[in-house]
Amino acid sequence: MENTESSVYSAFIAIFRRDLKLALRRRAELINPLAFFVIVVSLFPLGLSADPPTLLRIAPGVLWISALLATLLSLESIFRSDYEDGSLEQLALSHHPLPVIVMGKVAAHWCTTGLLLTLLSPALGVSLAMPMDKLGALVLTLIVGTPTLSLIGSIGVALTVGLRRGGILLALLILPLYIPILIFGASAVDMAIADLEVAGQLYLLTAMLVLSLTLAPFATAIALRVTLE
């Protein structure tokens, strides 16, 4: 019998690569959340004011809320197509633990949404009058915060993917759970702009990442079993 540890690891890698490849083949779907992110951010100067001090004041909240909404809209892609063509059922039947498979899918989802949103965020930060030397804090909070968004979101998608109209319901289920991440993420950027220490918020964001990394895949796996029943 093969070493179990290495087989679990190879299952994770196999799923991760498969989902990444699928995402890269669907370029349009890959770009949609990013375009959404850019459009939502650019609505705020148009709706509020183009005055740089005002923009700087709202920048952390606007960037974080927009990133959160862009992630929310992209969540369904974690399981939707696999659920519809039946491959999710096959994955659940495999002898590999379902939480590991979930982890592979969520990791691929984050690489194709959260990571790209993070890479795009400095440009949007500049457009909202953020000074160059504060963009690092924005990138740092997003890179620690967005994986948590994908992880918590995967629970919601697993619960709603079997429903015909799960979209708005997903927002209702997931947004309240996103509130702590929004609070710490936006306030860290806010404090960085005010030249204050942001280590505290980053620690808390990291703590939430570790917590969701350990618990969310199990909750998602249980939810998938209910959906696939």
Binding site: I155, L159, L173, L177, A219, I222, A223, V226, T227
Partner: peptide
């Protein structure tokens, strides 16, 4: 499903 959400 709702039970899982309650526990989460």
């Amino acid at each position: 499903a709702a039970g899982i959400l309650a526990v989460v």
